[in-house]
Write a protein that binds this DNA or RNA. Sequence first.
DNA 1: AACCTACACAACCGCAATTAA
DNA 2: TTTAATTGCGGTTGTGTAGGT
Length: 237
Amino acid sequence: MENNRVKKQPPKKNLWKPEEDLILKKYVEAHGEGNWATVSQKSGLKRGGKSCRLRWKNYLRPNIKRGRMSQEEEDLIIRMHKLLGNRWSLIAGRLPGRTDNEVKNYWNTHLNKISPLGKRKHVDSNDQNNTNSTETTNKKSKIHTYPVISIDAQKNPTKESNGKKEEGSTSLLNPLMTDTKSFSYDTESPFIATNTSTFFFDDEPLITYMDSFALFEGFGYTTGENYAELGMQLVSP
DNA sequence: AACCTACACAACCGCAATTAA
DNA sequence: TTTAATTGCGGTTGTGTAGGT
């Protein structure tokens, strides 16, 4: 060996360089999102499709909001996490300009430590007390197992038609109750906690979004006052 | 100044869901 | 209907850096 005081190795991590960002940005602007598997070949980037997709989604696409979370955003994350657990994409969907990765990182570094069990790294899987969220984060739990609710959905807004979403309404039929709760949504407005009934469906499939309401049922949230805890308010149809 | 530790966050990995053939 | 490819998601890891000793 020539030297036992070897200089620090150069970074091994494949961080994106500005020129790579530029290539990807121009490519997506020219060809649109999607077909990530072929982006690397066609653009000349020596990156996998997943990497390109992630980079675009988290940093390059328009309307990404950078910088510190506001107090309102933080509050919303806390409330949504309490309700949904580690459903980061779902939570991020309620925070315009924020990505799931950002929300997740923010939770892990800023908010998780607030909880009594808030150890940043290495959550002990044997820790029986580690149930501070309303839902286990086990991947298998992504299967929806909340049978108490049926959905009477009139509309499932999509981002089709020039990304312009439609105004609509959705109602939930609770079999344990005799009435149907319904609420309206304005698809142009972000779901920021307010004391109005306005919220945002984003790109999530309706059924996925409805999980949160199913959770309400599971935890005994059955009245309008409880919805208010989320800054939402049930309105009469 | 050198070392250590913890933090912040970008990026990767593996799995499941979805879509195309 | 089945299989393969692609996409999306959450968990985890790796790196740079700030602050303390």
